[in-house]
Write a protein that binds this DNA or RNA. Structure first.
Lengths: 202, 202, 202, 202
DNA sequence: GATGAATGAGAATTCATTCAT
DNA sequence: TATGAATGAATTCTCATTCAT
């Protein structure tokens, strides 16, 4: 019995893996463009240009696909955060850097961010999405912490506020500018300087 | 849907209004229990114990119903916040009071809060829900402001952080306790005291 | 407020009831012609010449439809048995009459009988069909008993044997004739006469 | 499917035969557990723990597989009947022995028996299954006859009644006990004794 | 004003089968 | 020879909406 040569098997496997990835990416695009409510075999199949039965073939159900999408989106988030981290590290003015980043996210990636938040909230309903959401939170949390050991509650406050800023920015008719956000971030990151500048101290 | 003039308000009219309200309440219950994705004529009709066709009769579509639900939910939120405001006003320890309130919301009204956040995010997709969501934000914002004129960015930071705390609390496996949240709120509400206690100031 | 006149409401109701009945009849025809395995919304809708969604509208699921069909078929069975009972009552030669009836059923109504047995066996798997199947059994059992109080085990034996005869007749390439069945029935109905005729007694 | 000549039977071939057998056994388990309606490539493949495509490879379609299963199940039946025959032969009280056996089958092997009857009835629809079903009937018939040449119609009555008893027992909520069945069997096997005991004869 | 009846469209999922490897 | 990959067709069921009454 001739076992298939490795490159043959790998060829088949690789092709399947590529299609699987294509479906996940299509799902993320659909979530970004139309929301989690629009995630259906048909919609994703149309977006990925594959037959609808493919989705059922590669994933055990919509939840399974959403978990994969959440995980995949998480990787993207981490990469993005790493990049941000580089930027921030080089600058003395952290609050400004973060404000610019958040404003940029809301300006240039509003839909994707909105989709991510929808997925995020969906995890509160579907236990299957929980682990993926947890990874997400941990990634973001690590980003906020920024590697250095900061004060716990202060970091939690900053992280929570960033979540709130993004969510409120998604709902606002006009997304906030970096100038809008900068003082908020200054208060959160450097409250003493912030308060002294405003004359609240001494 | 044309609202009738007041002088027409007889028994028949009142009955219709009552049924309309019943449908809205049912919609809020469905959103809380099963999420916005479960909002459908059928589901709500079953919950409200009215014929499915009457939902199409009283509302010009699902969005129209959701707008009404968001508005209605908003009234409930405002009432709840007013009550909280009373409680907080009487206590010297604001951070503790707010922490207890948030922890209580996540503990006792998790589903309803989750539903409100889903509706909230949905507004980011559906322009029709925007005005209702704006009222919501303004109500909450006014609550955080507490009536007195505080420092703008600090209040925005607090408000954003509260949103983030609630959302993260909804996703967490175990909701945070008041003890978990208290230092975070202390940092946000009284940063100088907080930092001094921790030895970060002189 | 004008309540719809009774005949209007009844008109609507009656129309719906008529369609419901039409679907049940179509289901029985499908079961007879193609077997319980062929029962599907599509097949029945095609047979009844109604849109497939109608089936979901009138029945809560396939099982619900099958229950209704089993019940309906039961009525048909009872009517048929009543008629048989008349025939048998008029004749002195019971065994012959029953043999002719069974042979006739297998000859002229093979498919319908087959479908009924499939439904019957399906009840062993689906609890929802149990009550309907029980009615069926009771109807047939009453028929066998024939009103007169006979000897319990003998009647059970006869009833069981009739079931077995029908089932074996359904599987046989050639259905049995009345002449084939007559001695079997004679043995079951009048064992003493049967045995005496064959010289097994005295 | 061409069966290979014997001399080809090497390891490879034996392995294929083993897998073929494994698939048939899995099919019988699926039929017993979930019914003929649940027989599908996927289900059986899962049960047999083989790739779905291998079912299409070893069998020319579902019917081909069912024929093989019916044949295989037939062997099992024959073995079981032989064993029973031994038991019965040793006992003077045939009716009791048979009653106990039937009650035991319904109590301990309800699902398997149900599956066998489903297969049995399916043969009435699918000509391909006919020969297999015929073998089945002949095996059972031979069992009832017990090797010795009995009275034809009496044996047919007994055999038919056994079929009916089993089928009715499958549908009943509670399977009959040996005590329930014993008088029925006594009437069928030893009608004269039965009737005399009951006082129907002189 | 209010609602049973009705349905085309779409949801998730399973199916038998084919085919390249 | 055996099997992963793949898919068109089918499954049950839900949906928002229309319409006659």
């Amino acid at each position: 019995m001739t076992r298939p040569r490795a490159e043959e098997t790998d060829g088949r496997r690789a092709k399947g893996e590529r299609r699987r990835r294509a479906i996940i990416d299509a799902a993320l695009r659909v979530v970004a463009r139309e929301g989690v409510g629009a995630v259906s075999h048909r919609n994703i199949a149309r977006e990925a240009d594959v037959p609808p039965a493919s989705i059922a073939y590669y994933f055990d159900g919509i939840d399974d696909l959403l978990v994969a999408a959440l995980m995949e989106g998480c990787e993207g988030l981490i990469a993005q955060l790493d990049q941000l981290h580089e930027q921030v590290r080089e600058r003395a003015d952290w609050p400004r850097a973060i404000a610019e980043n958040l404003a940029g996210v809301l300006r240039d990636h509003r839909e994707r961010t909105l989709g991510e938040y929808e997925l995020y909230l969906l995890a509160a309903r579907r236990p299957a999405l929980r682990p993926a959401a947890r990874r997400w939170i941990e990634a973001a949390s690590g980003y906020v912490n920024g590697g250095r050991g900061g004060d716990g509650p202060a970091i939690r406050a900053l992280f929570a506020a960033i979540d709130g800023i993004l969510m409120q920015g998604l709902i606002a008719d006009e997304p906030p500018t970096a100038d809008d956000l900068e003082p908020v971030l200054r208060f959160l990151v450097q409250p003493v300087d912030y308060l002294r500048d405003r004359g609240y101290l001494d």
